[in-house]
Design a binder for these strands. Structure first.
Lengths: 155, 155
DNA sequence: CGCATCGACTTGCAAAGTGCAAGTGGTAGC
DNA sequence: GCTACCACTTGCACTTTGCAAGTCGATGCG
């Protein structure tokens, strides 16, 4: 149990709060694997390319779960396996991820497929809607938890 | 010289590349200070609230400069002072920052002013345009460097 | 000038975190 | 029952962080 949720934050700045939760070299890669690649298990994350160490991966998954960004449950069909999934809070990171991809595609030499980048840039809303739909589709027996989320979009 | 620019990246994924450059708990705070708070000097960053250690701040500034996100130059009026500034690549992080703020404002208890968040949410383009204008305004004797940036926005 | 100050970093450590290799402990399959 | 799988732990060397103190080239001022 390396580090638990900070009882007191260093500041109440939204950027700072986000960085305390996601500000490391690995957390967003797990989010990426869940959001774009459809990966769901520890093994899959571990082998997804960048070579995260298993202890670091375990700690990050625990932190993401504690932060309410991913949920975990044992696979009913193979009880050895644990299936991770983005929560609503997690899938809400999609706009952030998209902007990161667009920024990197513009300023760095990336391997992102041109078509995907173009879709993100020119059909942003549709792209985001599609991601959310895919997420909802993989819901399985989604527990009816829509607990937080103060203001949906209105006002 | 703790760590230099990686000669080989762990992957060509845009998320991964961005995390190698900005994926830590401090770099984006410096970007925030430059982008939203108008801070420009080492001291100002050091005292901006979250309490970054001076050696870490120095290393981050060097890394951000090496990554082309900030530029530095000595103040002409007080040669002790170094003035940092976002580059074009740096100011292009504004959409990422805005999405982070919106996400955090929705899912965490932040101290972000309600009016600012509302402006980001409902007048996103205008908000971004304003940030860029403020950035251009502080240009001083802006060197005419618009070197990269493959596709501006068109296509 | 002479000297205290300032601003931007270094340096020295102890403590915390990371990467790697090798376990552990429940399933599953046969 | 035995081996394999999967999700983690554990040990340990190595690196990075956080904190305090120091360096070094400007100012400011008497």
């Amino acid at each position: 149990m390396p580090r638990r949720a900070p009882r007191s934050r260093r500041s109440d700045c939204p950027i700072s709060i986000t960085l305390e939760l996601l500000g490391d070299e690995w957390s967003l890669l797990v989010v990426r694997d869940l959001m774009f690649k459809g990966l769901r298990t520890f093994q899959e994350f571990a082998n997804s390319g960048e070579g995260i160490a298993s202890n670091v991966l375990a700690e990050r998954l625990a932190r993401l779960e504690a932060g309410g960004i991913v949920s975990r449950e044992r696979d009913a069909e193979d009880r050895r396996r644990v299936l991770y999934r983005l929560t609503e809070k997690g899938i809400d990171l999609a706009p952030v991820m998209v902007e990161i991809v667009l920024w990197a595609a513009r300023h760095e030499r990336t391997g992102a497929p041109e078509a995907t980048v173009a879709a993100m840039r020119h059909h942003r809303e549709g792209f985001l809607a599609e991601i959310r739909q895919r997420w909802e589709a993989t819901a399985g027996a989604q527990s009816p938890d829509s607990p937080l989320r103060p203001s949906p979009e209105s006002s």
